[in-house]
Design a protein around this nucleic acid. Sequence first.
DNA 1: TGGTTCTATATCGAGCTGACATATATCGAA
DNA 2: TTCGATATATGTCAGCTCGATATAGAACCA
Lengths: 177, 177
Amino acid sequence: MNVKTLCLGVLSLREASGYEIKKEIEEGLFSHFIDASFGSIYPALMQLNAEGLVTLRAEEQTNRPDKKVYAITEAGSAALIKNIQVLPARDKYKSEFLFEMLFQEFLPPDFLRLAIEKQLTDLKEDLQRITECRLEETCEFGSNFVMDYGEAVLSAGVKFLETKLTNLHISSVKAAQ
Amino acid sequence: MNVKTLCLGVLSLREASGYEIKKEIEEGLFSHFIDASFGSIYPALMQLNAEGLVTLRAEEQTNRPDKKVYAITEAGSAALIKNIQVLPARDKYKSEFLFEMLFQEFLPPDFLRLAIEKQLTDLKEDLQRITECRLEETCEFGSNFVMDYGEAVLSAGVKFLETKLTNLHISSVKAAQ
DNA sequence: TGGTTCTATATCGAGCTGACATATATCGAA
DNA sequence: TTCGATATATGTCAGCTCGATATAGAACCA
C-alpha cells in the first residue's frame, strides 16, 4: 500500500487539495493508522493525474498560489476498490519509546518518568482525536470499526502506563523514606 | 532513531552477525516495536565499524562466506546510552488492515472475514512470540516492561476482533434465514 | 509593529524497504 | 533420488518515503 492508494482513499470521501489531504491524514480518521508527508503526497497526486485516476481543478485565490483541488474519477474509484481487495500486509509498528524502555536500566529515573509521561500524553491525544471524529458525524460504515479498534488498543496502552506510573511513584516514595 | 542505534542496542545484549541481528529483530524481543531490512543493517554495521563503535571478527566457515561477528565497544555503549536519552519520537503505526476496514462497504463479505481473520492470526502470532520470549530467561530489567506493554495492547486488539467476527457470523446466519 | 501560526505548493538529500543476486546445506515430499 | 522449500549468510540497488527547507501572503495576537 502506497501513498497513491492512500490519496485515492481520501479523495473517495471528498475532493481535496494536497494540503487538505495531509491535514486529513494528520488529524482526521486516517491519522491512527497511516502517515504520509508532503514529499510523497504531491508527487503521488501528479502521477494519479497523469494516469487519469484523478482530475485537477485549479481554484483561483487572490494573492495566493492557486489551490489545486483533486477529485477522484471512475477509473480512480475502480483502482481503489481493486487495491483494497488484497490481503493486508502485516501492521508495522515502530516505537522509539519501547526501544528506550528496553534499556531503562541505563536511564536516569527522572528521564524514565518523563518518557513514560510523554507516551501517555501521545496516546491520550490519539484517543481525544477519535472522540472528535465521532462528533463530526461523517460516519461511514467502516469508520466506526476503525475508531472502535483504535479506542480499544489505545485505551489498553493508557491503562498499562498509568499503572506503571503509579508504581514508579510508590517505589520512589519508598526509596525516599 | 535509526538502524545504527538499533544495531548497537542488539549488540549490547550479545555479539552477533548481521544475519543474527535481523533474526533478533524479526523473532526476538525487538520484533514488536521495530523493523529493519538487510539493506539497512549491513551498511549500518559497516559504518559503526568505521566509527569504532563496534569491532569485527571474521568467523571462518567451511563452504560458506565468513560469518562476520560484530561486538560493541565501550565507545559504542556510550553512544547507545547517549542516543536513548532523547525524548522518544511519537510511535508510528501503519496498518493496511485498518485502511481496508475503513472502506469495508466496498469489500465482498467473504474477503472482509478473511482479512479480519488474517489480522487476528497476525496478532496472535505476536502474542505467541512474547510468550516464547518469556520462557527464554533472558529477562533484563526492561524486557518485562516491553513484553507486558505488548501483551496488553495486542490482547485488546484480539478481543476486539474476536467480538467482531462473532457478530459477523451472527449477522450472516440471520441473513441466510 | 513584530512574531507566530495557518494556508498552500513544491523540491531534494538522506534513509530505508523490498526485491534480487550469490552460494551452500539440510530436510521432507513426490 | 531428485526436486523444491527452507535456512544460513552477505551484499547491492532502484524506487519510495521522510523531514527539512524554500517561498509567500493572510490572519491573529501581543
